[in-house]
Every structure is written in C-alpha cells, then in structure tokens.
Design a protein around this nucleic acid. Structure first.
Lengths: 221, 221
DNA sequence: GGTGGTTGAGTTCATTGTGGTCACAGGCAG
DNA sequence: CTGCCTGTGACCACAATGAACTCAACCACC
C-alpha cells in the first residue's frame, strides 16, 4: 500500500483529491495539509510515500517547499498537481525529480493512470542494477497517455494479446501467441514488443536450438 | 553553449571526462573539482549549466551533495557518472531529478549520445505550456535507442554475458561463461571479445595447462 | 636440444529457423 | 472517392550453432 499526503490550499479541492486517490487500488491517503508548514509537519508525522503537491500555497511557493520536504524525509516522492503553466515551474519541478506534473483541471482517469504508472515504476526497480540498460529502464519514464496507443495498434487487439499472455503461466513466443489469439505473427510481435517497452511484459531469449534464438515473452507481475 | 563543471575525486578521471566533453559540440568545460567542497565553491564561482557528478567523493556522498548544489544554484542540472550500482543510489538520483545516470566504465560515444540528448531536451522546452501534452513532452521525452551493437550481436545476449561476467569475482574462460549463460562457446567468446574492444572487460592468458593457452576474461573495475 | 605428436582452445563457416521489414489489402470515416 | 488506419503475406536479414579447421603450448622420445 502506497501512503499519500494531499497538499492543497483549497480545503474542498484537497477533499476531492483525497476522494480520487482513495478510489484507486493500492493507494491510501494518510492525511491532508493546506499550507507549506502544515505539509512539513504532516510529512514528519505521517511519513507518507508520496505527496500530491499544489504549487500555489499561502505561505510558500510549492517548488521551494520541495527542498524542505526532502530535508525532512529524503525518500519521499512528489507528484505536482497545479494550474501553473509557466515553463519555469515545469522545468523547476522536473529538475527536482517530481514523478509527474498534472495540470488542473483534470479528471479522475487522468490521476488514476498517472498514479498507476507511478506504482508500476516504483515496484519494478531492481534491487541491484547490473548494466546501463537497467539504469535506463529506471530513468526512462513510461510514455504518457497511458490509454493512447501508438499508431498502428488498436486497443481491442492489445487487450486480446494481453489476455493471452496473462492466461499463460509459461511464456510464449511470438508465433505461439499469434496462434493462440488468432492473428498473424507480425501483429502479435508488434504488440508484444510494445508491451516490453512499457515494461508490462518482459522478454528472454531461448538458446540451444539451432538457428536464431527465440524471443519468449512473459507478462510481468 | 552549455557550460559544464566536472566533479570527480580522481584527478586523472576528471581530466579524461573533461577531454570527452570538450570533443562534443555545444558543450564547454568551465572547471573541474575533486571534492564536494570544491564543487560547491566552483559552482558559485563559475555558474555552470550542468555538473557531471561522481558519487564517490572524499568528503561527502554525491547524492547528499546535490541538495547543497541546488541551494547555491537552483537552476543547475546534474548528470551522475559513477560506478555505484546500488538500487538506492539510482533511485535517490532519479528522485532528485538528475538528467541522466551513466555507469562507469563508459566510452566516449555513451557520454556523447547522452549529452546530446540532454541538449536537445533543454532546447525544446516551450516558453509556456498550454496543455497537459506539453507537460508530458517535457517529463517524458522519447528516449532514443543508443549503444548500437555491431552486426551479429544482440542487446539481450550482451546483457546476459555482461551480468555473468560481473557476478563472477574470479575471471572466466569463454567456455565457462558459455555454460553459465546457457549459450554456445562460440557466441560467448564473440561477446567477450566485443567487451574487450570496448574496454569494458580485459583479458589475460593463462598458461601451464596442456594445450593452447586459455583466455580468461574479467570485468573491468 | 631438436622434433613430431598430443591436447585443448581459438577461429572460420555453412546451416537454420526465427526476427524484422515492406508494401499492400480491406475497412472505416469524412 | 480519397485518405487514413490496422492487420497480413511474403521476403530477406540476422543471430546463434556445431562441425571442421588452425594454432600455440606442452610433452616424450630420440
């Protein structure tokens, strides 16, 4: 369970955000704050994993608050939720390593996809990185527009391929997956590789056979 | 022109990094530092845009230095260059918004692609964001596939061989590595020799056995 | 000490079955 | 009809393999 602190100067908005977060599996709101000082105090007291931070607070600008929050609890993650559209605000937030920057106003689905993406990324950090590729996986942010598939891919086919992978405890080759779903090998491979870039699936090569090694896909988690 | 400060406790390594950066168009090294205190002073004095930061410094751990650097100059960007492979180091660096995390040892091309990607991202921030899509572009830029391997080698197998070599404190022969990874001796040797050309691995001949001398590989550093 | 045989690893290469690409077909919307 | 998307068959490229070959050190015998 990922614990969350909601920070927003507007009491009603904080309540709405709290309601949103509590509807998402795996997240739990442990408190709310309406000012920078309250946020620092709540952080020390409640020790949340994640802070939903509005930038416009009565006593301090949100970006300047981040350093204070980190001083109290270095391992906290920050997700900025604000109406601030200045480039300097976005750059400053990114520079301080916020996990996301969500513009107000937004809908429940916007927040949900971003929190779920954060949860997945958080869980997928290996205990020990061995190669630069591992590091890049942690650095590389997953594509935004979680629902939005790249050109050439359809949601319906993606669901079918995902379902086929999930229902297989063993792993699948592109050809096997194609036969199981009922599509061509080319299409199956395209979707499987897409899932790999999203880290929803992982691939391992099977050696030993003569000929080129076989890519075998497995659904993660 | 992007101004750079190079920070590494090893004087020679700092010099090598300086040479690398100066060979890249659009970048200019304005100074080097060999400790945390020197880095803070140089940052205040030289006001660079970017710091190449080693994490292992004599007076302070690099991640703890970042906050001090930001206190002096909030708009500075950090690119971590280190041999630190602990997950906590990578996560801590990402949490503080480093622009990249490059594992030692690395080649000139590795640094060049990453710096150029940084320069491109830096230049492409719009003055004013209007939609969430603009924000997402800043947060999640498309990460180009770097580290192009020569023909006949695959990234997945290269990772496996590198991992096998690194997890062996002792050194390995081609045959031993092949068995450990699960590939043929011929393939193992091909990857091992590739790592040697990249200076990511080094080879020593072992005599004394009957037959032709054996090439034993060891991961550098 | 020279010399040829033995040994085991380095090296080359044709083979192989999958990976990846390309241009096109069918469908849907404007 | 035109343009755009999505899936497909066909074709070539490609990575790994094992067998055959070469090579460098060792060893025994003369």
């Amino acid at each position: 369970m990922i614990t969350v602190l909601v920070v927003d100067d507007d009491f009603m908005v904080a309540r709405i955000h709290r309601g949103f977060v509590e509807r998402i599996d795996g997240f739990e709101v442990v408190g709310t704050a309406n000012s920078g000082d309250q946020a620092v105090a709540a952080l020390a007291d409640l020790r949340p994993d994640l802070v939903l931070l509005d930038l416009y607070l009565p006593d301090v600008f949100g970006l300047d608050l981040i350093a204070r929050l980190r001083a109290v609890r270095p391992e906290v993650d920050i997700l900025v939720i604000t109406a601030a559209r200045e480039a300097e605000a976005v750059r400053g937030a990114v520079r301080q390593g916020v996990v996301n920057y969500l513009l107000k106003p937004f809908g429940f689905e916007d927040l949900r996809t971003r929190l779920q993406e954060y949860a997945r990324r958080r869980a997928s950090v290996p205990e020990q990185v061995t190669s630069q590729a591992d590091v890049d996986r942690v650095l590389a942010p997953a594509r935004p527009h979680v629902n939005r598939l790249p050109k050439g891919l359809s949601q319906e086919t993606a669901d079918l391929v995902a379902a086929a992978l999930r229902t297989t405890s063993d792993n699948l080759s592109a050809a096997e997956c194609a036969e199981k779903v009922g599509i061509s090998r080319v299409s199956a491979r395209r979707y499987l590789e897409y899932f790999c870039t999203r880290h929803q699936a992982e691939v391992a090569l099977r050696y030993g056979t003569t000929g080129r090694p076989e890519r075998r896909y497995r659904w993660t988690t």
